[in-house]
């Protein structure tokens, strides 16, 4: 059996569509019959990362690779990059504008939540070039 690959584009600054990709992937994982908690953890991590791309990164690409043992999601953007990854990993630290915080986003829980909901997270970032986040959720951790 071959792995299943899904590819999506995230549109920047469109909050009406924020969460669309994670919603689609969540439905696919449910249709496939992944355990409810695996689906939920993937959905939470993906939603956070997708919102990050909408707010900070001018959108980007999300690639999902599915096999029975592990779900791998790669979020790749060509945004501004993260200046201090240590700070960004701290709960509550945020560079989001007042406007975005007023909409209920940008609470500084993005990266910490993604890490908490996944079994593996890797962040590659370069200022002015972009950020690639890879997460894995194992079916039987």
């Amino acid at each position: 059996m071959e792995d299943l690959h899904l590819e999506f584009t995230v549109v920047p600054d469109d909050f009406t569509r924020a969460g669309e990709v994670s919603g689609k992937v969540k439905k696919t994982l449910k249709d496939l019959g992944f355990p409810p908690l695996v689906v939920r953890r993937t959905a939470i991590a993906m939603y956070e990362a997708e919102i990050n791309m909408v707010i900070h990164a001018n959108g980007g690409k999300i690639t999902v690779t599915i096999n029975p043992d592990v779900i791998t999601v790669v979020f790749a953007d060509s945004g501004p990059g993260i200046p201090d990854i240590g700070l960004a990993m701290q709960e509550g630290w945020s560079t989001a504008s007042e406007e975005i915080r007023d909409m209920g986003f940008g609470a500084g829980m993005g990266l910490p939540n993604i890490k908490k909901s996944s079994d593996y997270m890797d962040v590659q970032t370069e200022l002015g070039v972009g950020t690639t986040i890879t997460i894995k959720i194992f079916t039987n951790p």
Partner: peptide
């Protein structure tokens, strides 16, 4: 209890092949 009626197959590998 969880009602899994919406799954496209009860076996995960078969479901992934079926979705492809």
């Amino acid at each position: 209890e969880f009602d899994p009626s919406l799954r496209i197959d009860s076996n995960l590998s078969d479901a992934i092949s079926l979705l492809a």
